[in-house]
Design a protein around this nucleic acid. Structure first.
Lengths: 271, 271
DNA sequence: TTTACGGTCTACACCAACGGGAGAGTCAAC
DNA sequence: GTTGACTCTCCCGTTGGTGTAGACCGTAAA
């Protein structure tokens, strides 16, 4: 006969846990001293304790263990419990996988944005941009409706996405209404052969551009455009058909309402 | 201003949850009627509620959310929280993966054993056995010491294991002590090229045998051997150097103490 | 015999994130 | 005024234990 402390050391279960299992009628002491209330465990309880810890390590609930131990004595008899439990754990793992995906997405998004910021700074730069495969949806109307376009694009080609969302602006001057633009995502090669309704997949040509990183809400973008346009005029550059806006950091997954930290790269291509 | 019920429908959070978040100072109503105690939420609380649900979906704790919302307003600021949380979830997933592995192992073991039992029945059979790649450790001593051998074998070649554990018995008669046997595992081809100290990897030749399924504890195996030996003598068969015991079902991972359900196949090879 | 010290006892509170239900009060429409 | 839907507070239950307080027990040294 072992005292509860000795039995605890033998089985690896804490004294508290042993008392709890006693209360739950899961692992009864062999004898309880009537006067002192001390619990005493005989050797044959060790095997039961081992079974219980094994089942707990497999994350069975106490009530499952209760049923299993009181009704069966062979693994073949509890296959339905095991299968059910396997389903349960698999379910949880699936959920965790999704959670991890989302968390990774947040991390990657922010880390990329930080890298971009450090690399670029907030000065105007002249850049040589390589050609870029994109999928886009042409839009007409207000700029602020672009969200719908991005949502649709996300549904249709989200899985091929390979870079930050962009906008191609076909207007030569700012328009409140009836603007002419295209929302698009850089996509990977798998998307090239796809023919998706309403979506244009094509390669944007390489070229030279003036680039400026804009920090702040979208309705202040005009100021950055003005800065760039002054330079264009000074240098007498001839602009290409459309400019690009690259949304390096927009509304986050968690925090959406702080446009002060939005980060947008404007690229004005010239010939 | 929305009543708690309306706000609940808008946000997808239950009324109970909203009251709980109020109690936790996480999502305060915009106004609480002094007399009736009714909670009223203004529109700007919707965004906060969305953030909270998003964070809860990502399985952040209430206290994490509290810190996050009260101190920060941009995803870049909470990267350390996200990373830490990612670690935590990954850890849990890793644990779950192990649990699932163990549960699958139990299922597979039992299902294989059941298949074998149904296929074989408990009659003596004549079988043609194909050649079999095994890894084995030669033992001398008592049969009941074979557990140590299997443990060592499991450590050294467990990852190549490809079938039920077996024993090769080199004795022509039963010996209590000083028995001469070899514990072994069938292994896959990856093991063939390995040179592992103390372990012999080789191909057991194909051949004909008398096979009998024995159900019950190992110390009753002799009875089944006797049954087989009578037939050997009747037919005047000449036996090969060693017989095989295949442990189709032995002590389980959970239940170990019911040898009545153990299942062992005895194979006596003859020329 | 007393005292010290460690082991053990019961009983209660606590964790996380709510859900259920009782009993009472409130709001808005008819 | 009444009805029915809504809301309030308060308390309990969940899961698998852990932490703590205050009392009791057992054994050995002084």
């Amino acid at each position: 006969m072992f005292s509860i402390g000795e039995f605890s050391k033998l089985t690896g279960l804490t004294v508290k846990t042993l008392r709890f299992y006693h209360e739950q009628n899961l692992l009864l002491p062999s004898r309880v001293d009537g006067q002192s209330g001390y619990r005493y465990y005989s050797e044959d309880k060790i095997e039961i304790a081992r079974m219980i810890s094994t089942l707990r390590e497999l994350e069975f609930t106490i009530s499952d263990i209760h049923e299993i131990l009181s009704q069966y004595d062979d693994e073949a008899d509890i296959l339905q419990y095991v299968e059910q439990h396997l389903d349960f754990i698999s379910q949880r793992m699936k959920q965790d996988r999704l959670t991890i995906q989302s968390l990774r997405k947040i991390l990657n998004k922010e880390k990329e944005a930080m890298k971009m910021m450090q690399a670029a700074g907030f000065e105007m730069q002249e850049k040589e941009i390589e050609s870029l495969l994109v999928a886009g949806i042409r839009m007409k109307g207000r700029y602020c409706d672009c969200g719908k376009g991005f949502a649709e694009l996300g549904k249709k080609v989200g899985r091929y996405m390979h870079g930050k969302p962009m906008m191609l602006c076909y207007d030569t001057e700012y328009r409140e209404e009836d603007a002419n633009y295209e929302v698009c995502f850089p996509v990977n090669e798998k998307c090239r052969s796809r023919n998706i309704e309403g979506v244009s997949v094509r390669e944007l040509p390489a070229g030279k551009c003036l680039s400026l990183l804009h920090r702040g809400p979208y309705d202040e973008l005009r100021r950055s455009y003005e800065v760039l346009m002054r330079i264009v005029n000074e240098r007498n550059l001839e602009l290409e058909e459309f400019s690009r806006e690259i949304y390096i950091k927009g509304p986050g997954i968690i925090f959406r309402g702080n446009p002060k930290k939005y980060l947008t790269e404007i690229q004005l291509f010239y010939k």
